[in-house]
Design a protein around this nucleic acid. Sequence first.
RNA 1: GGAGGGGUGGCCGAGUUGGCUUAAGGCACAGGUUUGCUAAACCUGCGUAGGGGCAACCUUACCGGAGGUUCGAAUCCUCUCCCCUCCGCCA
Length: 424
Amino acid sequence: MLDIQIIRENPQMINEAANNKKNPIDIDSIINLDNEKRDIIREVEKLKNQRNVSSQKIAVLKKQKQDASKLIEEMKSVSDTIKNMDLQLAQKEQQIHEHLIRIPNIPHKSVPHGESEKDNAVVYEWGDAREFSFEPKDHLEIGTALGIIDFPRGAKITGAGFPVYKGAGALLERALINFMLDTHSGNGYTEIFPPFLVNRASLFGTGQLPKSEDQMYYINEDDLFCIPTAEVPVTNLMREEMIDFVDLPLKFCAYSACFRREAGSYGKDTKGFLRVHQFNKVELVKIVLPEESYEELELLRKDAESILKLLGLKYRVLMLCDADLSFAAAKCYDLEAWAPAEQKYLEVSSCSNFEDFQARRMNIRFRPQGKEKPRFVHTLNGSGLATARILAALLENYQTEQGTVLIPEVLQPYMHGIKEIGPR
RNA sequence: GGAGGGGUGGCCGAGUUGGCUUAAGGCACAGGUUUGCUAAACCUGCGUAGGGGCAACCUUACCGGAGGUUCGAAUCCUCUCCCCUCCGCCA
């Protein structure tokens, strides 16, 4: 959510930014409603002042045992008028709110302008593509042959896009999660194990609601949603709180299962792990001082990248152009791991700075040093990383001609020393 | 699921016969006095969010949330959310 005052002062700039983000808004309605609202405020406040003054007079009269009935009569009609105007005011405010919550965050100045994801800029590349002396198989084929992933049975017990991990596959998944959590918590991130169901207020806070309600699994009876990412519960840890500036930055890492309906994306990336309804992810969340958020974004990106480097996976980093930025983000880097059989990069992480967009929605503030007023914090998050696509990249990159899969050294301690996954 | 208790400003904590409480007091914080330095003591200031004003400042709202009664509500009424204790059920 943006500050209405900024919108009031820069309507053209906001309108253009929203258009660039492919998220058009009705700026004129907002400005008009805002003006109407302020007109009402000015009038009703005069009446309320009159009411307060008269109530005091009535109190004094009554104390002196004098008659106050005339004044009380007068105030009855004033009170009615106030009640009416308050109603109008609430309506205006509700209408403004409905607009405000649908205005996307403004892209940072460093974000390139573009028309689509094709205009995202490659800002960094690491690692060499592995040379194969044989025709590499895709991860689905490898995993199925080794009996470590089972999509058909997942489909049987739940539905398409709910993979089952078996044996060494289950162990590898757990190893990845533990490895990532250990790495990040050793790096100053406090580990959180969050609830996987959240309420509406939390999803509104991080910006998934109201825009993306149809993308989430919903439990009607309790009005709760399955989390699409640990970002939601972890960032909302600090919702409605005032943080002392000496405690900033806050750094959290959290494992969670992630649930996504992926409505409207059928037919895209359907193979294997490329797009599933439930996957595992370790998420990084930072709550920081506004002045430091862009520096912290670079550090966050570096921390996420370190996992790919330790796993020895070739990857690249994209800076998203404005047209591809998500609703709440001001700037975002995508990390993409190379999958040799797919012959394409798989998005395994998104590292975003939301500036105060989420903080305003969640009312997370900090009290600066001295006599300064409380201000909104900046929030950031990034996957560190999503295991489903990492698993795909691992299987494809570390496959052997015999159909086995080598385990990267850093994961071996997490896999009882297993160096290679072979046939059962 | 049943019974009881409670939600007040950054924190702690008064305030339930409605009206000099548009929230006492304390802590923390900021400035100052005293002091060789630190500490302590003392003095002063200090809630949040709107609206108006160049500014000093004026004004409105806010005591978990939403309604209601009233000239006037932290205080009375209704609904609702959350927390705590005990009982029941259960991994």
